[in-house]
C-alpha cells in the first residue's frame, strides 16, 4: 500500500520514491504523531524515567516509519503503543537496566499486604478511598514503579494512556480476561501500597 512493489521498476525511480515518501509522511502524521504523548507516557513507566522515554519513543518512531505498511487499520494508538513497548524492551535489554529486574520481588510484599486490605476496608469504607485520594504524586509514582512489570504495564495502559480493554489486549497480545484480572490485581496492590505509605 505504501511501498512500490519490489519488482516494479520505472523509468524514473526517484519520482516513485518521492511519491512514496510523501505518502509515508502523510501516514506518519496521521498514525504515529498523534500518539507521541501516549508513547512517552508508556515508555516512561516501562523505562522508569522520562529522559530514557524520549530516546525510546524516537527509536520507536523510526521503526514505525519503516513499518508503516504493517499497519492494518484498527486502533492506531494500539499499533503505536505496541511498537513503543517492543522498542522499550529491546532498549532495556541493551541497557541492562535494573528497572526491569528489580520489580519482581516487591510484588510479593504487595500481595501479602493486599491480602489484609479487604478486612480493613469493612470497618471504615469511606476513609479508605479518601486516604488514597490524599496521596501525593511521589507516593503514587513509587507505588506504580513497585508493581511487577506485567501488572504495571496493564495499569499504565489503562489509567495513564486511557486505552480500552480491547486496545490493551491488542498491545500486550493477551486475552481480555487476562487483561481484566491483571488490572484488578494491579489496582488492588497499588491501593494497598499507597494506603501503607499514607498511614
Amino acid at each position: 500500500m505504501v511501498r512500490a512493489p519490489s519488482g516494479g521498476r520505472t523509468d524514473r525511480p526517484q519520482i516513485r520514491q518521492a511519491v512514496d515518501q510523501d505518502r509515508a509522511a502523510e501516514l506518519f502524521h496521521q498514525i504515529v504523531v498523534p500518539h507521541l504523548a501516549d508513547g512517552l507516557a508508556l515508555a516512561r513507566w516501562l523505562a522508569g524515567n522520562a529522559s530514557d522515554a524520549e530516546d525510546i519513543v524516537q527509536d520507536a518512531c523510526m521503526r514505525a516509519l519503516r513499518g508503516l505498511d504493517g499497519y492494518r487499520g484498527g486502533s492506531a494508538r494500539a499499533w503505536m503503543l505496541t511498537i513503543v513497548r517492543n522498542t522499550a524492551f529491546s532498549w532495556l535489554a541493551r541497557q541492562r537496566s535494573s528497572a526491569l529486574v528489580m520489580v519482581g520481588d516487591l510484588a510479593d510484599i504487595d500481595e501479602a499486604t493486599s491480602a489484609n486490605a479487604p478486612g480493613g476496608a469493612e470497618l471504615q469504607p469511606t476513609p479508605e478511598s479518601e486516604l488514597i485520594r490524599q496521596a501525593d504524586q511521589r507516593t503514587v509514582t513509587a507505588a506504580i514503579a513497585a508493581l511487577s512489570l506485567p501488572t504495571r504495564e496493564v495499569l499504565v495502559l489503562r489509567d495513564i494512556n486511557g486505552c480500552s480493554y480491547k486496545e490493551i489486549a491488542e498491545v500486550l497480545n493477551l486475552p481480555i480476561g487476562t487483561v481484566m484480572s491483571r488490572l484488578a490485581r494491579g489496582r488492588q496492590q497499588l491501593a494497598a501500597a499507597v494506603k501503607r505509605a499514607e498511614q
Binding site: 507521541l36 504523548a37 512517552l40 507516557a41 516512561r44 522520562a50 522515554a53 524520549e54 476496608a121 469504607p125 469511606t126 479508605e128 478511598s129 479518601e130 488514597i132 485520594r133 496521596a135 504524586q137 503514587v140 509514582t141 506504580i144 495499569l155 489509567d159 495513564i160 486511557g162 489496582r187 497499588l190 491501593a191 499507597v194
Partner: peptide, 18 residues
Amino acid sequence: DEIEATREVVAALERPAV
C-alpha cells in the same frame, strides 16, 4: 470507591510533555 480513588490518583499523575 477504592477502585475509583486508585484510578483517579493514577490518572492525575503528571505525564511527560511532548
